[in-house]
């Protein structure tokens, strides 16, 4: 059989087109899209922190570290509680020893004695990952190891994270850290393994004061969603345009 170069090229191009065009009739779905398409109920996880109710007991930190296997005595933590003491001269004193894990049993703030008479206001602020709608950490991950699920939670693939630390740098809230044992980026994920099975996150479950609650923003009947929708809530650092989804009741202007 003879075949001229021109004929060969012609047939090669024709054959390629003929075999690929039918393929384009299929739509390629990302795993997230596929999952969203089969799931019946729409979910967008959010969190509500009531700073008026937090007593700074630190049980949430203990529960989180235990549940998520973050070494108990290491300084890093997926959630933490900050103590704010604003004195009458307008100064703000902040601390969070061991992330507030053991509560705030010492009156001193970083060794500094504060005269109780001089205190204008004092309160506790629990912090955790904001599961942003526009997460800076997901944007900067060079390998796509950190990603956003269809229900709004940002997760990390421990098998794929290269440990460059770019996501840690990119997060304006400082929620990310290197896991001391796995040597990859780590952070709060609202206890994704629990909430997707209908259980509350560990910190929510152990909070005796209802200071921490989880919400599904897509469900208008969710009591916590109702609070977020009807009451005056605030978010942290909205100037970064990350659209955080941890909402705060009673957030003070001094909170960093």
């Amino acid at each position: 059989m003879t075949c001229s170069r021109r004929q060969f090229l012609k047939e090669a191009v024709g054959g390629t087109l003929a075999s690929t065009l039918p393929l384009s009739a299929f739509v390629f779905l990302s795993p997230a899209e596929a999952k969203a398409a089969v799931d019946e109920a729409k979910v967008r996880w959010a969190f509500l922190v009531d700073t008026n109710k937090c007593t700074g007991c630190g049980l949430c930190v203990t529960a989180c570290k235990t549940e998520n296997e973050v070494p108990f005595d290491s300084p890093v933590t997926r959630t933490w509680v900050e103590r704010y003491v604003v004195t009458k001269d307008g100064e703000t004193h902040i601390d969070s020893p061991l992330g507030g894990r053991d509560g705030f049993i010492d009156d001193k703030i970083r060794g500094e004695e504060i005269d109780p008479e001089n205190i204008a206001k004092a309160f506790f602020v629990p912090k955790l990952c904001n599961q942003c709608d526009n997460p800076a950490c997901v944007q900067v991950c060079p390998v796509g190891a950190t990603y956003q699920t269809h229900d709004g939670v940002v997760l990390i693939d421990r098998e794929w994270c290269i440990g460059c630390g770019y996501c840690i740098m990119a997060c304006p809230y400082g929620v990310r850290f290197f896991h001391p044992e796995h040597k990859v980026a780590d952070k709060c994920n609202f206890c994704y393994h629990r909430i997707t099975k209908g259980m509350p996150p560990a910190c929510v479950e152990c909070c005796s004061f209802d200071a921490r609650r989880i919400a599904n923003l897509e469900d208008p009947d969710d009591p916590v969603t109702k609070i977020i929708l009807t009451e005056r809530v605030a978010v942290l650092k909205d100037e970064y345009g990350t659209k955080p989804h941890v909402f705060y009741l009673g957030l003070d202007a001094n909170v960093r």
């Binding site: 890093v76 061991l98 740098m169």
Partner: peptide, 11 residues
Amino acid sequence: LFVYPNEFIYW
């Protein structure tokens, strides 16, 4: 002074 618990000189 006050630094978030997870902040270190990572880079």
